[in-house]
Every structure is written in structure tokens, then in C-alpha cells.
Design a protein around this nucleic acid. Sequence first.
DNA 1: CGTTTGGTTAAGCATATGCCTAACTATCAG
DNA 2: CTGATAGTTAGGCATATGCTTAACCAAACG
Lengths: 118, 118
Amino acid sequence: MLNQTPDLDRLFHALADPARRAMFERLSRGPAPVSELARPLPMSLPSVMQHIGVLEAAGLVRSEKFGRVRTCSIEPGALSLAEQWINARRQEWECRLDRLGEYLKTMENGEDDNGRVD
Amino acid sequence: MLNQTPDLDRLFHALADPARRAMFERLSRGPAPVSELARPLPMSLPSVMQHIGVLEAAGLVRSEKFGRVRTCSIEPGALSLAEQWINARRQEWECRLDRLGEYLKTMENGEDDNGRVD
DNA sequence: CGTTTGGTTAAGCATATGCCTAACTATCAG
DNA sequence: CTGATAGTTAGGCATATGCTTAACCAAACG
């Protein structure tokens, strides 16, 4: 639960780029070599490599070299950290609405009239 | 379903910063004025304003000015786009594992030996 | 061997990001 | 009106990001 802040930074930052998301989407349908990830993208190979670096640093993708071809694949559970954070937010949000609901209900019977809502 | 790519860019980019996530976390517990969002953060007010701008541009936060105080609040459903994308990825991933499982099962009985996996 | 193929390294450049300070506006309190 | 409070605008600066081209390396192919 502690200070995973830099991990979330890297994770969300990695996902904040269309090229990187495209690669990740491709990989979620199965492993692929670098050149296949590069093919649909309108950029040079070195750029693609940099993006792969970012995805790996974020723990989203793993890659291994066999012979001269580097095969990339999804790191399973890679997105769970992001998911957890989002769910935690939703839960806080809903919890707050519940408290608000409770409060409004106590207002209904026995109006005590010295409160404000937002 | 189409071309929400720039939206996802803005969304994930907005979440990729610890200060912005901190603000969003605070707001998911209820609305707050700018100065309250700023208090725990180690930076100047103008910087905070910029972060709020990013959060608003991403559709994560809304803000309105009453008198001289600007009150910020969560945009409900703000995270749903991110959630959708993540879920879609997981689904593709699982679907792929299913296909792989099917394939392995057909291999078990009646070995036909001319296929490759990955 | 020599060549193609797949990837990598290095260096450089343009733009974006994140932060700051200083100056300014607008509201509220006395 | 005067001063304090809340926020805003403007300008500038340092670093990060995303991309490029030009070499370079190493496995495969003929």
C-alpha cells in the first residue's frame, strides 16, 4: 500500500502515448518481435525501441532475445496497479456519496437547519 | 468506440503526475477550493493552477467560481474511459489465453504435429 | 566469405512540461 | 476607503520527451 507513487507515475505515463498503447494492444493479442510492433507505426525503429524501453520500465511489457530477434510480450497483471488505484478512487467517491445520503436522511426527519450542503 | 485516442492521452497523462493524483484523491473525498488543494503540495499556487488546468482538460475535474473562491470537484464517471480501456485489454488477453487453451486441447488427442505455438 | 536482416547505440534537435517569481485583479472584512 | 485574501496572468528557465539520422553489431543466408 506504501509509496507506489513512482510506479504509478511510470505506469500512467507509459499509457499516455498512443504509440505505446497501440503496441500494448497488439501485445495483448500475443507476443511479437520488435519489427512487427514497429510496422504499423509511423516512426523509425529507434523511436520504437525507446517506447519499448518505457513500457518495460513501467512493468507493462517484458522482452527477450532469441537469436537476433527480440520478442516482446505482455507482463501479466501489468495493469493491476492502475486498476487498483482507479477502484480505490471509485470506492472513496461512493463512500462519500453514502455519507452524504446518510446526512440527508437525518435531515429529512427532525430538521435542525444549521447545516449547508456544498 | 472511435478515435478516443486523444482523450485517453489526456486522461492518462493527467494521472501520471503525483501532485495531480494527490489532488484527485483529495477531491474524491469531496469538493475543495484551490487553496485547500494547494496546501499539502510543495509548490506555488500558479503551479497548482496549471495542474488543475490539466485535470480539467482531461475531464477529470470540474471547477466553478463563487465570489472569489474557486471550488473544484470530481467529474463523475471521469475515470470510466480509462477503466474501459483497461478492461478491453484484459479481455483480449484472456480471450487469447482461451484460444491457446483450446488449441492445446486439440493437440492432446490426435497429435497432428505441424503447428507452432507463438 | 559477403550480404541482408533485425536490432542497437549515439548524438542532436524541437517541443512540451513543470516549476518559479513578479505583477495584477477581484472579493471580502473592518 | 484600506488592507488582507483568493486567485490569475505573464514571462522565463531547466529539464524531459519524442523524434530523427548515421553509424554500428550480430545472427542468418547463399
